[in-house]
Simulated scan of single mutants.
Amino acid sequence: MLTNSKAFTTYSTNNIDRSKEFYNNILGIKAKKNKMGLLELELKNCQVLIYLKEDHKPADFTVLNFIVHNIEEEVSLLTKKGIQFETYENELKTDSRGIHKGDVGPVIAWFKDPAGNILSLIEEI
């Protein structure tokens, strides 16, 4: 029924301008406010809209994943730009740089945007 439908994703922030600066200047993604005041991320194969929510509470799950060719290189570049990668000790245990290389699942590293939303880098297989 919805197989051929266009789709997009949304999530909230508590500060549109700070989010715009983060996505533009730190992640290098063109982000602009649209006519409705929503922040649009210009990505190759995915439409993302970020909306202002006064009582914003960040999700406790990943809201956006980026597929990368070399996760080690991307983590290094983003760390130099001030990104702090999350470290975990559970079944998704990460190394000291925040990279999970377990037996199950992809090589992945999680970080947060200024509103506390969880984003990730996933190494392309």
Score class of each variant (00 low, 15 high):
M1F: 07
M1N: 11
L2A: 13
L2G: 14
T3W: 06
N4V: 00
S5K: 10
A7E: 04
F8A: 08
F8W: 10
F8S: 07
T10H: 06
Y11L: 10
Y11N: 02
S12C: 09
T13N: 02
N15G: 05
I16G: 00
I16V: 09
D17I: 11
D17H: 12
D17V: 13
R18M: 12
R18G: 02
R18Y: 06
S19G: 03
S19K: 00
E21F: 12
F22A: 00
Y23D: 01
N24H: 05
N24D: 11
N25C: 08
I26D: 01
I26Q: 00
L27R: 03
L27G: 04
A31M: 02
K32P: 00
K32N: 15
K35E: 09
G37Y: 01
L38Y: 11
L39F: 04
L39I: 03
L39M: 07
E40Q: 15
E40M: 12
E42G: 05
K44G: 07
K44C: 03
K44M: 09
K44H: 11
N45F: 09
C46E: 09
C46A: 14
L49S: 11
L49E: 07
I50H: 00
I50S: 00
L52E: 12
L52C: 04
K53H: 11
K53Y: 08
E54K: 15
E54F: 06
D55A: 11
D55T: 14
D55M: 04
H56E: 06
P58V: 04
A59P: 02
D60S: 15
F61K: 08
T62K: 08
T62Y: 02
T62W: 01
N65V: 08
F66S: 02
F66P: 00
V68I: 13
H69P: 08
N70R: 12
I71R: 01
E73W: 11
E73S: 14
S76D: 15
S76F: 11
L77A: 13
L77G: 04
L77T: 08
L77K: 15
L78F: 15
L78E: 04
L78C: 10
T79K: 14
T79H: 07
K80M: 12
K80E: 15
K80F: 08
K80I: 03
K81S: 10
K81Y: 10
I83L: 05
I83P: 00
Q84I: 14
F85T: 06
F85M: 08
F85R: 04
E86F: 09
E86S: 14
E86G: 02
T87D: 06
T87G: 06
E89H: 12
E89M: 13
N90A: 12
E91L: 13
E91V: 15
L92G: 06
T94M: 10
D95Y: 07
D95L: 09
D95V: 09
S96E: 15
R97G: 03
G98S: 07
I99T: 02
I99M: 08
H100M: 11
H100L: 05
G102W: 00
G102V: 01
G102D: 03
D103W: 07
G105M: 10
G105T: 06
P106L: 09
P106E: 12
V107G: 00
V107S: 09
I108A: 01
A109W: 01
F111S: 07
K112P: 01
K112Y: 07
D113H: 07
D113Y: 03
D113I: 02
A115G: 06
N117W: 01
I118V: 15
L121Q: 02
I122Q: 10
E123F: 04
E124I: 07
E124M: 13
